[in-house]
Design a protein around this nucleic acid. Structure first.
Length: 764
DNA sequence: ACCGTCGCCATTTTT
DNA sequence: TGGCGACGGT
């Protein structure tokens, strides 16, 4: 036997070496799952059991795929590139690029993101004269996506809907939506998987080819696979059954997206000869943290019998703290981080703050910035959904795929070229009538007779044609620069000459930088490849562990990651577990699994916090601690936290009896605040400040307001009382304030808010 | 055609 | 709270 596997424990070794048939690895959090998978691939290759290109390995994120690839390479040498290693989506796109013409799409296809999708649905609703108040876009999006996850195309959906008026309506939308996508030669996320399966089902020879090609299949995070993904994997492994899936049902947190936990629970039923290996030793966390996780998850009914243990130390007790409001909650976090950093030899990247909803991110950002604590926020405002990035992408998508009407509509009048809605509507109708794309329609100037902006449309068309001619002659990054020049986008931003337009331009430059990086990494990089790659990246993929900053993200995004010290913030019933999950039995179980994921991210220390009063979505409420906190027994908490726990329990009851009703009665009995209209009183006082006046409680701490300060310029030398001398590298507008990126001589890079930071200007 | 303003609405998680 | 669409004025 090879020495290769010496780095594994017995169970891991057993899992790595079993390659004869279906294998289910039940891998608890922190049990060395990725390690086992990596070694398994290395073992397969080194033993000569399969060739690299005969391995199909599917991970949950691109980042995980990349990591695995490098690790395999460092274990066995240089041929990791030939392995088919990627997410379900990236692997399927790769297959579709070869096979999609079998189902009547062309290989130039574009991938539509959520925004494109919504646009199409809105258009369809309008065309079908369906009221989007009765059938909201969000609902339809969800219905279509759900159907596709279950392999239900619009024909079947329509059949199933007979007799149900509502469903019949939705079926109509689904049908036209799908036809529109096809006409645009575009796929949405769900199509990528569903159509791949469709090709296999309709073309046995193609299925056969890939069945023979992939002699060994591995799937990571198996608990998060949905029905179509299950079918895909089953089809591909049907011939030889050489399949290894790894997962942990306790970490299944994507049920809302169609992930089907029964895929993993019933694996042994699907594959009766399957071998099962349980990895139960945890290498990540202290005993206290692990016990807390175990205590929480044991309240779930549906789980496979499995208990994590560790030989690590007990570690510190868990800290549970309640703060008056969400601002002070985060201030506590920031102070704690500073305190630990000072005391111990830790860097900011050892910390993570995890939260349930993205809406919480705003306060986190505000307080971190004000305090000068470097942070990286994952998710939230996505780079690729910024207007300017979407615009440039739309140009590229149209250049790549002339049938993409959605992209064309987005940019035909961006920058403004005097082509308005009336003209566009006419083009749209005409194109639909002739069954061609809008871009094709405007190739013939005769089609534009009678349209006032015909001249402008012709100029637009010629410009795009020129860019199309350039497409294969120059590099992607060069093409992007050409687009910005020829389209007048660059001129538009220059003319605007505001802080905002400057920022937009910088974003575009950053985007071009991404393209350059792509060109360097990928041999023969085509525009299509680039567009696919940006459509399929997630925010976590871009997480840079090396940069010294605290990671702020949702618990969902945190899956698969680990940090020394973890803060779980906003642990309040209604927020976490979320209000909407509380009624559903399975809902609360999924939330509990999410909590389990959150807790098990921590290696050394775990902080759990909540605010007794929280303002979210514009309304302020008094909160109750999360039920998950109750599930952690007292002996795992430090003394102060135990007190807080019992106090808070009583206190929240008190709130309901006394304080809350008191405040409530003041509000309702007082004529200052008209209940029906808004939360502003006739004196312009918000409920917040009103409450502050009567009770001395405020949800936002008040800060001394300084005069509005935007005297700073890039390159200026400044002095901060804590960080000393530094140079301003970047200024970004942020509401009425400015973010300043400053490189300090002794304290490194910081991001500060101009209005909250006392800075002395040393030199201009 | 364009731009600004108003009011309504939802509001979990995302490959 | 804020994002988005509808509407109306220029």
């Amino acid at each position: 036997m090879s020495e290769l596997l010496n780095g594994l424990n017995d169970k891991q070794k057993e899992a790595a070496m079993y390659v004869d048939g279906p294998l289910l690895i039940l891998a608890g959090a922190g049990s060395g799952k990725t390690r086992t998978l990596t070694y398994k691939i290395a073992y397969l290759l080194e033993e000569g059991i399969v060739k690299p290109w005969e391995i199909l390995a599917i991970t949950f994120t691109n980042k995980a795929a990349k990591e695995m690839k490098t690790r395999v390479e460092s274990l066995i040498g240089e041929n990791g590139n030939d392995i088919w290693l990627g997410t379900f989506h990236s692997v399927c796109v790769r297959i579709l690029k070869r096979e999609i013409n079998l189902i009547g799409y062309s290989t130039d296809f574009n991938i539509f993101d959520e925004l494109d999708k919504e646009k199409v649905i809105k258009e369809v609703l309008k065309k079908l004269n369906i009221d989007d108040k009765v059938y909201p876009v969000s609902l339809i999006k969800y219905e279509i996506s759900n159907a596709k996850d279950k392999m239900i195309d619009y024909v079947k959906y329509k059949n199933d809907a007979i007799g149900d008026f509502r469903k019949e309506k939705i079926a109509e939308v689904y049908e036209l939506y799908q036809k529109t996508l096809k006409q645009n030669n575009a796929l949405d996320f769900d199509d990528i998987i569903m159509l791949t399966v469709k090709i296999f089902l309709e073309n046995p020879d193609r299925l056969n080819y890939y069945q023979n090609k992939f002699k060994y299949i591995l799937v990571d995070e198996y608990q998060d696979t949905n029905k179509v993904q299950f079918i895909l994997i089953s089809l591909l492994s049907a011939a030889h059954g050489k399949i290894c899936v790894v997962g942990d049902e306790s970490q299944s947190i994507y049920g809302f997206r169609g992930a089907d936990i029964s895929n993993i629970l019933n694996f042994e039923r699907e594959y009766p000869n399957a071998k099962v290996v349980k990895l139960e030793e945890n290498y990540r966390s202290t005993k206290n943290i692990l016990n807390a996780a175990n205590e929480v998850i044991k309240n779930n009914k549906s789980k496979i019998d499995k208990k994590l243990w560790t030989e690590n130390d007990e570690g510190e007790k868990i800290c549970y703290k309640t703060l008056p409001n969400e601002y002070e909650e985060v201030e506590f976090v920031v102070d704690k981080i500073d305190e630990i950093c000072k005391k111990e030899n830790k860097t900011y990247s050892d910390f993570a703050v995890l939260f349930r909803t993205n809406a919480q991110a705003r306060v986190l950002e505000e307080v971190f910035m004000r305090n000068g604590t470097p942070y990286k926020l994952i998710g939230g405002l996505k780079f690729y959904s910024r207007k300017e990035i979407k615009d440039l992408t739309s140009y590229l998508k149209l250049i790549q795929n002339k049938d993409d009407n959605i992209s064309l509509k987005r940019i035909i009048n961006e920058p403004k070229r005097g082509i308005g809605d009336t003209a566009l509507d006419r083009l749209d109708i005409l194109a639909t009538e002739n069954n061609i794309s809008i871009f094709e329609l405007i190739q013939d100037s005769n089609n534009l007779i009678g349209i006032r902006s015909a001249g402008n449309i012709i100029m637009f068309r010629d410009m795009i044609n020129e860019l199309i001619a350039l497409k294969d002659k120059i590099k992607i990054s060069e093409l992007m620069k050409e687009v910005l020049k020829k389209s007048g986008y660059e001129d538009m931003l220059n003319q605007e000459d505001s802080k905002e337009s400057e920022m937009r331009f910088e974003n575009l430059m950053e985007f071009i930088g991404v393209a350059m990086e792509f060109e360097n990494e990928t041999a023969d990089a085509t525009l299509a490849d680039f567009l696919d790659s940006i459509a399929l990246v997630s925010d976590v993929d871009k997480l840079d562990e090396s940069s010294e900053a605290v990671t702020l993200m949702t618990m969902h995004s945190a899956k698969g990651l680990e940090f020394d010290d973890v803060f779980l913030v906003g642990m309040e019933d209604g927020l976490f577990p979320s209000k909407r999950s509380i009624d559903e039995v399975d809902g609360i179980e999924e939330e509990r699994r999410l909590c389990y994921v959150g807790i098990t991210r921590a290696k050394e220390r775990l902080y759990i916090t909540n605010a007794s009063k929280r303002t979210l979505y514009g309304s302020t409420t008094y909160t109750m601690p999360s039920r998950f906190v109750d599930e952690i027994s007292d002996d795992l908490l430090d003394e102060e936290s135990q007190e807080n726990k019992s106090l808070r329990k009583r206190k929240s009851e008190d709130y309901l009896d006394n304080e809350y009703s008191q405040v409530d009665s003041i509000i309702s009995s007082n004529n200052f605040i008209p209940k029906s209209t808004s939360n502003k009183s006739s004196f312009g006082l918000s409920v917040d400040s009103f409450l502050k006046n009567i009770s001395g409680v405020s949800s936002k701490p008040s800060y001394e307001s300084k005069s509005f300060n935007n005297d700073y310029t890039v390159g200026m030398q400044v002095k901060h009382k804590k960080f000393g001398v530094g140079v301003i590298k970047k200024i970004e507008e942020e509401g009425e304030d400015f973010k300043l990126d400053i490189q300090f001589e002794n304290f490194g890079f910081k991001r500060l808010m101009a209005n909250f930071t006392p800075l002395e200007i040393i030199e201009k």
